[in-house]
């Protein structure tokens, strides 16, 4: 079952897996940074994405602003609402992906609620994402049970399928989701939505262990991670650490420079003290 996650053949080489494995070879967890496309502008998202990659992020997650973001807390809602109000269009996400992949080696994934993909057509969306150099999709409201079209398109275009697992996932669902995923599995650290939290939930470690036990080779933890100490705590047991809200606050308050310095700081937490 884990063969689907192997970087494997050229056609199905997983960019995300390769990026995580490069970090692993350096004895550390991978850092994954999230930015919403078009906030505060498309140009700044590209510049901030490049800054992320140059300051220690191994993977970059670009969110598509959406009218009904049920998995997002207030900070990301405010940012994506602003991007939409400024006239962001879905197809611009490919400009952002291309703008970053043309300048860096980071694996660039798109995080999107499913309806914008449905509207464009799963096949067409996949084609354009692959064309822009994108690594794959993170899908917060798409479960493998509903993903047959996406499974086919992602196979065709060699894109990663990052599904989520949660503290509430049953062992059967964990197994099914791990088997359907490619690149890595996104472990939701807590039962809740995005947003900075003061401490890392103890549930996170259990979810990662359960996903590994279900056969996942690469499990990355997201939701609520905002500083280097939290990164260090998670890096001890996970293959990657995902930071979102803190970076959105940084770009909103201090622009690209603030993203660069926060990324540098976060990356100090990645090295595993001891195996």
């Amino acid at each position: 079952m884990s063969t689907v996650q192997d970087p494997g053949t050229a056609r199905n080489a997983s960019k995300s897996a390769a990026a995580i494995d490069r970090a692993k070879a350096q004895g550390r967890a991978a850092l994954i940074g999230y930015l919403p496309a078009g906030y505060p502008s498309v140009e700044e998202t590209i510049a901030a994405g490049i800054a992320l990659a140059e300051n220690g992020a191994d993977l970059i997650e670009i969110g598509i602003p959406y009218s009904d973001p049920v998995m997002d807390g207030l900070v990301i809602q405010a940012a994506t609402t602003e991007a939409l109000a400024k006239g962001f269009h879905v197809k611009q996400v490919f400009d952002v992906v291309r703008g970053i992949t043309s300048k860096t080696d980071a694996a660039v994934l798109v995080m999107t609620y499913w309806n914008p993909v449905v509207r464009m057509g799963v096949e067409e969306f996949s084609r354009q994402l692959a064309d822009a150099g994108g690594a794959g999709l993170i899908t917060p409201d798409l479960i493998p049970d509903e993903a047959s079209e996406w499974m086919a398109a992602s196979d065709k275009y060699g894109l990663d399928r990052v599904f989520l697992v949660a503290p509430s996932s049953s062992p059967e669902r964990m197994k099914r989701t791990v088997e359907a995923s490619r690149g890595f599995v996104y472990a939701v650290s807590i039962m809740g939505v995005t947003g900075a939290r003061t401490s890392v939930s103890s549930a996170a470690k259990d979810v990662v262990a359960a996903a590994h036990a279900a056969g996942a080779e690469r499990v990355c933890v997201g939701l609520g991670v905002s500083n280097a100490d939290q990164v260090r705590e998670i890096a001890a047991y996970a293959d990657g650490v995902i930071v979102g809200t803190a970076l959105v606050v940084a770009i909103g308050d201090g622009g690209v420079d603030a993203v660069a310095s926060l990324t540098k700081d976060l990356s100090t937490g990645l090295t595993r003290e001891e195996a």
Binding site: V70, P140, L164, A166, S168, S169, V188
Partner: peptide, 14 residues
């Protein structure tokens, strides 16, 4: 129909 929902809620729907 179906379940176009975050994984976190699937257990509750079940």
């Amino acid at each position: 129909g179906g379940r176009w929902m975050p994984e976190s809620l699937i257990a509750a729907l079940d």
